[in-house]
Protein backbone atom coordinates (compact mmCIF):
# COMPACT_ATOMS: atom_id res chain seq x y z
CA UNK A 1 0.00 0.00 0.00
CA UNK A 2 1.12 3.50 -0.69
CA UNK A 3 1.44 6.43 1.63
CA UNK A 4 -0.93 8.74 -0.21
CA UNK A 5 0.22 12.20 0.77
CA UNK A 6 -1.87 13.82 -1.97
CA UNK A 7 -2.03 12.50 -5.48
CA UNK A 8 -2.21 15.95 -7.08
CA UNK A 9 -3.88 16.82 -10.35
CA UNK A 10 -5.37 13.86 -12.19
CA UNK A 11 -8.07 15.32 -14.41
CA UNK A 12 -9.65 18.58 -15.52
CA UNK A 13 -11.29 20.43 -12.63
CA UNK A 14 -12.42 23.47 -14.59
CA UNK A 15 -16.11 23.15 -13.72
CA UNK A 16 -17.90 22.17 -10.50
CA UNK A 17 -19.06 18.96 -12.12
CA UNK A 18 -15.55 18.04 -13.16
CA UNK A 19 -14.16 18.98 -9.75
CA UNK A 20 -16.87 16.89 -8.07
CA UNK A 21 -16.11 13.89 -10.26
CA UNK A 22 -12.42 14.28 -9.59
CA UNK A 23 -12.93 14.59 -5.82
CA UNK A 24 -15.23 11.57 -5.71
CA UNK A 25 -12.85 9.56 -7.83
CA UNK A 26 -10.21 9.86 -5.14
CA UNK A 27 -12.11 7.90 -2.50
CA UNK A 28 -11.63 4.21 -1.96
CA UNK A 29 -7.86 4.43 -2.01
CA UNK A 30 -6.31 2.05 0.51
CA UNK A 31 -3.22 3.47 2.17
CA UNK A 32 -1.26 2.40 5.17
CA UNK A 33 -2.31 5.13 7.56
CA UNK A 34 -6.06 5.70 7.73
CA UNK A 35 -9.07 5.12 9.95
CA UNK A 36 -11.28 2.11 9.25
CA UNK A 37 -15.01 2.82 9.14
CA UNK A 38 -17.01 1.20 10.47
CA UNK A 39 -14.40 -0.04 12.95
CA UNK A 40 -15.60 -3.61 12.36
CA UNK A 41 -14.24 -3.32 8.81
CA UNK A 42 -10.65 -3.07 10.05
CA UNK A 43 -8.31 -5.27 8.01
CA UNK A 44 -6.24 -5.78 11.18
CA UNK A 45 -8.74 -7.00 13.80
CA UNK A 46 -6.73 -8.12 16.84
CA UNK A 47 -6.76 -11.87 17.54
CA UNK A 48 -9.65 -12.98 19.68
CA UNK A 49 -11.62 -9.76 19.23
CA UNK A 50 -15.13 -9.86 17.76
CA UNK A 51 -15.07 -7.24 14.98
CA UNK A 52 -18.54 -6.18 16.10
CA UNK A 53 -17.10 -5.06 19.43
CA UNK A 54 -14.64 -2.61 17.86
CA UNK A 55 -15.30 1.08 18.56
CA UNK A 56 -12.11 2.58 17.08
CA UNK A 57 -9.80 1.21 14.41
CA UNK A 58 -7.10 3.33 12.85
CA UNK A 59 -3.54 3.18 11.62
CA UNK A 60 -1.94 6.43 12.73
CA UNK A 61 0.64 7.85 10.38
CA UNK A 62 4.21 8.15 11.56
CA UNK A 63 4.46 11.00 12.32
CA UNK A 64 0.84 11.71 13.12
CA UNK A 65 -1.68 11.99 15.91
CA UNK A 66 -4.98 10.50 16.98
CA UNK A 67 -7.54 11.08 19.68
CA UNK A 68 -10.80 9.62 20.95
CA UNK A 69 -13.13 9.72 23.90
CA UNK A 70 -13.94 6.19 25.02
CA UNK A 71 -16.38 4.53 27.39
CA UNK A 72 -15.24 3.02 30.68
CA UNK A 73 -14.26 -0.59 30.01
CA UNK A 74 -12.87 0.08 26.55
CA UNK A 75 -9.79 -1.99 25.84
CA UNK A 76 -7.23 -0.13 23.74
CA UNK A 77 -4.56 -1.95 21.76
CA UNK A 78 -1.57 -0.03 20.39
CA UNK A 79 0.71 -1.81 17.97
CA UNK A 80 4.08 -0.70 16.64
CA UNK A 81 3.67 -2.02 13.10
CA UNK A 82 7.26 -1.65 11.86
CA UNK A 83 9.17 -1.22 15.11
CA UNK A 84 9.66 2.49 14.47
CA UNK A 85 6.56 3.93 16.11
CA UNK A 86 6.54 5.80 19.41
CA UNK A 87 3.15 6.38 20.99
CA UNK A 88 3.17 9.39 23.33
CA UNK A 89 -0.04 9.13 25.33
CA UNK A 90 -1.98 11.61 27.45
CA UNK A 91 -5.13 10.57 29.31
CA UNK A 92 -7.82 12.97 30.50
CA UNK A 93 -10.96 11.99 32.40
CA UNK A 94 -14.02 12.63 30.28
CA UNK A 95 -15.96 13.21 33.51
CA UNK A 96 -13.88 16.19 34.61
CA UNK A 97 -11.21 17.63 32.37
CA UNK A 98 -9.03 18.85 35.24
CA UNK A 99 -8.37 15.22 36.15
CA UNK A 100 -5.63 13.90 33.94
CA UNK A 101 -2.60 11.67 33.79
CA UNK A 102 -0.10 12.39 36.54
CA UNK A 103 3.20 10.80 35.57
CA UNK A 104 4.85 11.43 38.95
CA UNK A 105 2.07 9.62 40.79
CA UNK A 106 2.06 6.91 38.11
CA UNK A 107 5.68 6.18 39.05
CA UNK A 108 5.57 6.98 42.76
CA UNK A 109 2.41 5.19 43.88
CA UNK A 110 3.48 1.75 42.56
CA UNK A 111 7.07 2.45 43.72
CA UNK A 112 8.08 1.62 40.14
CA UNK A 113 9.45 3.93 37.45
CA UNK A 114 9.09 1.54 34.51
CA UNK A 115 5.78 0.78 32.84
CA UNK A 116 4.75 -2.81 32.24
CA UNK A 117 1.80 -5.17 32.45
CA UNK A 118 -0.45 -4.36 35.40
CA UNK A 119 0.87 -0.79 35.80
CA UNK A 120 -1.86 1.71 36.69
CA UNK A 121 -1.90 5.04 34.85
CA UNK A 122 -2.95 7.35 37.66
CA UNK A 123 -4.49 10.79 37.79
CA UNK A 124 -3.45 13.44 40.28
CA UNK A 125 -6.68 12.75 42.12
CA UNK A 126 -5.74 9.38 43.53
CA UNK A 127 -7.58 7.38 40.91
CA UNK A 128 -6.77 5.03 38.04
CA UNK A 129 -7.55 6.42 34.59
CA UNK A 130 -6.40 3.30 32.75
CA UNK A 131 -4.42 0.14 33.42
CA UNK A 132 -1.70 -1.36 31.23
CA UNK A 133 -3.23 -4.85 31.07
CA UNK A 134 -0.88 -6.45 28.55
CA UNK A 135 2.64 -5.69 27.41
CA UNK A 136 4.02 -7.44 24.36
CA UNK A 137 6.78 -4.87 23.97
CA UNK A 138 9.27 -6.15 26.53
CA UNK A 139 8.80 -3.12 28.75
CA UNK A 140 10.29 -0.82 26.13
CA UNK A 141 8.41 2.22 27.39
CA UNK A 142 9.32 5.50 29.04
CA UNK A 143 7.74 7.84 31.54
CA UNK A 144 10.74 10.14 32.03
CA UNK A 145 11.28 12.06 28.82
CA UNK A 146 7.90 13.03 27.41
CA UNK A 147 7.71 14.54 23.95
CA UNK A 148 9.97 16.62 21.77
CA UNK A 149 9.29 20.34 21.45
CA UNK A 150 9.32 22.81 18.61
CA UNK A 151 12.57 24.19 20.03
CA UNK A 152 14.27 20.82 20.41
CA UNK A 153 13.24 19.60 16.95
CA UNK A 154 14.39 22.85 15.34
CA UNK A 155 17.77 22.37 16.99
CA UNK A 156 18.04 18.71 16.02
CA UNK A 157 16.20 18.29 12.71
CA UNK A 158 15.87 21.86 11.47
CA UNK A 159 12.08 21.91 11.86
CA UNK A 160 9.46 20.83 14.34
CA UNK A 161 6.20 22.34 13.13
CA UNK A 162 3.18 20.10 12.64
CA UNK A 163 3.37 20.75 8.90
CA UNK A 164 7.02 19.78 8.67
CA UNK A 165 8.41 16.31 8.02
CA UNK A 166 9.80 16.22 11.57
CA UNK A 167 6.97 17.44 13.81
CA UNK A 168 7.54 17.74 17.54
CA UNK A 169 5.47 15.46 19.72
CA UNK A 170 4.17 18.44 21.64
CA UNK A 171 2.89 20.14 18.47
CA UNK A 172 0.95 16.98 17.62
CA UNK A 173 -0.44 16.70 21.16
CA UNK A 174 -1.56 20.34 20.97
CA UNK A 175 -3.60 19.45 17.90
CA UNK A 176 -5.01 16.25 19.39
CA UNK A 177 -5.96 18.22 22.50
CA UNK A 178 -7.60 21.00 20.51
CA UNK A 179 -9.77 18.47 18.66
CA UNK A 180 -11.05 17.27 22.03
CA UNK A 181 -11.78 20.79 23.23
CA UNK A 182 -8.63 20.98 25.30
CA UNK A 183 -6.04 23.75 25.53
CA UNK A 184 -2.24 23.50 25.79
CA UNK A 185 -2.51 23.85 29.58
CA UNK A 186 -4.48 20.58 29.51
CA UNK A 187 -1.45 18.67 28.24
CA UNK A 188 0.40 17.28 31.27
CA UNK A 189 3.54 15.15 31.13
CA UNK A 190 2.94 12.08 28.95
CA UNK A 191 4.01 8.45 28.81
CA UNK A 192 5.70 6.90 25.78
CA UNK A 193 5.10 3.38 24.53
CA UNK A 194 7.48 1.38 22.29
CA UNK A 195 10.65 3.28 23.03
CA UNK A 196 12.46 2.53 26.26
CA UNK A 197 14.70 4.48 28.62
CA UNK A 198 16.46 3.25 31.75
CA UNK A 199 18.01 5.29 34.57
CA UNK A 200 21.54 4.53 35.76
CA UNK A 201 22.72 4.76 39.35
CA UNK A 202 24.05 8.26 38.65
CA UNK A 203 20.77 9.31 37.07
CA UNK A 204 22.08 9.09 33.50
CA UNK A 205 19.47 8.00 30.98
CA UNK A 206 20.13 4.99 28.79
CA UNK A 207 18.22 4.51 25.54
CA UNK A 208 16.96 0.93 25.18
CA UNK A 209 15.01 1.40 21.96
CA UNK A 210 12.01 -0.57 20.79
CA UNK A 211 10.93 -4.20 20.80
CA UNK A 212 10.66 -4.50 17.04
CA UNK A 213 7.85 -4.90 14.54
CA UNK A 214 4.59 -6.12 16.03
CA UNK A 215 5.26 -4.93 19.58
CA UNK A 216 1.97 -4.12 21.31
CA UNK A 217 0.45 -2.90 24.55
CA UNK A 218 -3.13 -2.97 25.76
CA UNK A 219 -4.79 -0.54 28.12
CA UNK A 220 -8.20 -0.68 29.76
CA UNK A 221 -10.09 2.55 30.39
CA UNK A 222 -11.17 2.55 34.04
CA UNK A 223 -13.24 5.74 33.64
CA UNK A 224 -14.80 7.48 30.62
CA UNK A 225 -11.60 8.62 29.02
CA UNK A 226 -10.21 11.03 26.46
CA UNK A 227 -7.07 9.58 24.88
CA UNK A 228 -4.56 11.79 23.07
CA UNK A 229 -1.81 10.08 21.07
CA UNK A 230 1.15 11.62 19.28
CA UNK A 231 3.13 9.20 17.14
CA UNK A 232 6.46 10.98 16.88
CA UNK A 233 10.16 10.34 17.37
CA UNK A 234 11.23 9.94 21.00
CA UNK A 235 13.37 12.79 22.44
CA UNK A 236 16.30 10.44 23.05
CA UNK A 237 16.05 8.51 19.79
CA UNK A 238 19.63 8.29 18.52
CA UNK A 239 18.55 8.10 14.87
CA UNK A 240 19.17 11.58 13.44
CA UNK A 241 16.83 10.83 10.55
CA UNK A 242 13.75 11.20 12.82
CA UNK A 243 12.68 7.62 13.40
CA UNK A 244 8.96 7.09 12.86
CA UNK A 245 6.55 4.44 11.65
CA UNK A 246 2.85 3.61 11.58
CA UNK A 247 1.00 3.03 14.83
CA UNK A 248 -2.05 0.76 14.83
CA UNK A 249 -4.85 1.58 17.25
CA UNK A 250 -7.83 -0.64 18.00
CA UNK A 251 -10.33 -0.20 20.81
CA UNK A 252 -13.23 -2.42 21.67
CA UNK A 253 -15.95 -2.76 24.27
CA UNK A 254 -14.63 -4.93 27.09
CA UNK A 255 -14.62 -4.81 30.89
CA UNK A 256 -12.97 -2.37 33.28
CA UNK A 257 -10.73 -3.89 35.93
CA UNK A 258 -12.33 -5.71 38.83
CA UNK A 259 -11.10 -7.18 42.11
CA UNK A 260 -10.72 -10.47 40.22
CA UNK A 261 -7.87 -9.01 38.17
CA UNK A 262 -4.44 -9.65 39.69
CA UNK A 263 -3.28 -6.04 39.26
CA UNK A 264 -6.21 -4.77 41.40
CA UNK A 265 -4.64 -6.26 44.53
CA UNK A 266 -1.02 -6.41 43.38
CA UNK A 267 0.00 -3.84 46.01
CA UNK A 268 -1.94 -2.09 48.80
CA UNK A 269 -1.46 1.28 47.05
CA UNK A 270 -3.02 0.03 43.84
CA UNK A 271 -5.92 -1.60 45.65
CA UNK A 272 -6.75 1.76 47.26
CA UNK A 273 -6.44 3.50 43.88
CA UNK A 274 -9.02 1.15 42.36
CA UNK A 275 -11.26 1.59 45.41
CA UNK A 276 -11.09 5.38 45.04
CA UNK A 277 -11.96 5.00 41.34
CA UNK A 278 -14.80 2.62 42.09
CA UNK A 279 -16.35 5.04 44.60
CA UNK A 280 -15.92 7.98 42.21
CA UNK A 281 -17.95 6.09 39.59
CA UNK A 282 -20.43 4.62 42.07
CA UNK A 283 -21.38 8.10 43.27
CA UNK A 284 -22.07 9.15 39.69
CA UNK A 285 -24.20 6.11 38.98
CA UNK A 286 -21.65 4.74 36.52
CA UNK A 287 -21.27 0.97 36.59
Amino acid sequence: MSNDLGAGRRASTATPAQARDDARGRAGTAVEAMPYLPPSSSPHVPDGVDPGDLVWAETVAGPGYAHATLARGSRIRLEDVTGDACAHVVLVSALQRSERLNVADTQKIPWQAYLGAGHPLLSGDGRVLATVVADAADGRHDAFCGVTTLASNHARYGAGEAHSATPAGRELLRLAAAKEGLAPRDIPPSVSFFKGVRVGADGALEWTGGAGAGAAVELVAEVPLTVLIANAAHPLDPDDRYRTGPLRVHAWAAAASSPADPWWTATPERARAYLNTQQHLLARGIR
Binding site: C145, T149, S152, I187, P189, L205, P235, L236
Partner: peptide, 28 residues
Protein backbone atom coordinates in the same frame (compact mmCIF):
# COMPACT_ATOMS: atom_id res chain seq x y z
CA UNK B 1 5.46 26.20 32.48
CA UNK B 2 8.18 24.01 33.92
CA UNK B 3 8.49 20.59 32.32
CA UNK B 4 10.30 17.95 34.32
CA UNK B 5 10.29 15.74 31.22
CA UNK B 6 11.77 18.31 28.84
CA UNK B 7 14.40 19.13 31.46
CA UNK B 8 15.31 15.48 32.08
CA UNK B 9 15.38 14.61 28.37
CA UNK B 10 17.56 17.59 27.47
CA UNK B 11 20.19 16.90 30.13
CA UNK B 12 19.83 13.12 29.76
CA UNK B 13 19.79 12.70 33.49
CA UNK B 14 16.96 12.17 35.96
CA UNK B 15 18.47 14.34 38.71
CA UNK B 16 18.95 18.09 38.95
CA UNK B 17 22.42 19.36 39.80
CA UNK B 18 24.41 22.59 39.44
CA UNK B 19 24.20 23.65 35.80
CA UNK B 20 20.80 22.02 35.19
CA UNK B 21 18.69 24.23 32.97
CA UNK B 22 15.04 24.14 33.99
CA UNK B 23 13.11 24.01 30.72
CA UNK B 24 9.52 24.82 29.91
CA UNK B 25 7.13 22.49 28.12
CA UNK B 26 8.13 24.41 24.99
CA UNK B 27 11.77 23.46 25.57
CA UNK B 28 12.89 26.97 26.54
Amino acid sequence: RYSAQATIAAQRNAYLVEGSVLLSDEGR
